[in-house]
């Protein structure tokens, strides 16, 4: 059986840990991560009684919705731009890939330095352009730190969106536009009656992928703010990781992993269905 080695490896390193995590959420665990005793839904109810958890969960949803919306819009704009016929767009297409191509952890460290309130070039730029004379210390207070993280996440996600939309746009035949132009459709009408309907499947797939990547964006937040100051920039995955490996509370971390698993499962099943239906 040709698939046996791959399946065995996945069983040990993916499926067994998933099941183990799911089961763990019903056990009280010690600081070594061993099961102490079965507590049923006890871990769930104590986690749900913790206010921080709900704040983090709500922030994860907000984070995902806002970031995906911004990436989709910016990506759509950029995709349409690159679909126009002008000199040099080939070079631009190549260059915009770089944020996606660069290793995320390293890119996050560069951003951290860019956000530096005293020596960072971002604040220097804002002052020079006259946008503000007293730019914030981005990473020192909760609100600006959240938006700083979000900026980085959006920045990372734009190239994929733009390229996916560009591929979708290039697949639309010119004849539709020519026919519409002859019939007197203006550019807004052409966009909403030709471009959007044809792009719909790409938009669906790309946003679904983006939702999963954004919801999972551990690296950016963990590196730039580590969820701080005081958990105010944590999303579910970073809070989960800290609960496990910094606070050594494996029971509650497992419950959060359980919830993350369900969320991702729902979205990835939707993605799989779309993929097989369209393809």
């Amino acid at each position: 059986m040709l698939m046996a080695p791959a399946l065995l490896a996945m069983a040990a390193i993916v499926f067994y840990p998933v099941i183990s995590t799911l089961l763990s959420s019903f056990f009280e665990m010690n600081k070594m991560g061993d099961w102490v005793r079965f507590v049923g839904l006890g871990n769930f109810s104590s986690l749900f009684a913790d206010k921080t958890f709900w704040v983090v969960l709500a922030r994860s949803v907000f984070w995902t919705v806002v970031a995906v919306a911004l990436k989709t819009l910016a990506g759509l704009g950029l995709g349409i731009l690159l679909n126009q016929d002008y000199r040099g767009r080939g070079i631009i297409r190549t260059l915009i890939v770089i944020p996606w191509a660069a290793p995320v952890p390293i890119a996050a460290m560069i951003w951290m330095w860019t956000f530096n309130s005293q020596f960072g070039l971002l604040n220097h730029f804002l002052k020079q352009m006259g946008i503000t004379s007293r730019p914030p210390a981005w990473l020192a207070n909760p609100t600006t730190a959240f938006w700083a993280n979000l900026t980085v996440d959006v920045w990372l996600g734009i190239p994929f969106m733009a390229l996916a939309f560009l591929a979708g746009l290039q697949a639309i035949s010119h004849e539709y536009y020519e026919a519409a132009e002859i019939d007197g459709a203006n550019s807004l009408q052409r966009f909403s009656y030709i471009t959007l309907p044809f792009l719909r499947p790409v938009i669906l797939v790309a946003t679904l992928l983006s939702v999963m990547w954004t919801f999972n964006d551990f690296n950016v937040i963990y590196i730039i703010t580590k969820g701080g100051p005081m958990n105010t920039t944590d999303i579910l995955v970073t809070y989960l990781y800290k609960t496990a490996f910094l606070f050594l509370d494996f029971s509650h971390a497992s419950v959060m992993a359980f919830i993350t698993f369900i969320v991702l499962l729902v979205f990835s099943l939707a993605y799989a269905r779309l993929y097989f239906k369209e393809g």
Partner: peptide, 11 residues
């Protein structure tokens, strides 16, 4: 699409 965070503890 799985997140490594889900399986990091058992691993």
């Amino acid at each position: 699409m799985f997140s490594p965070v889900i399986i990091i503890m058992p691993l």
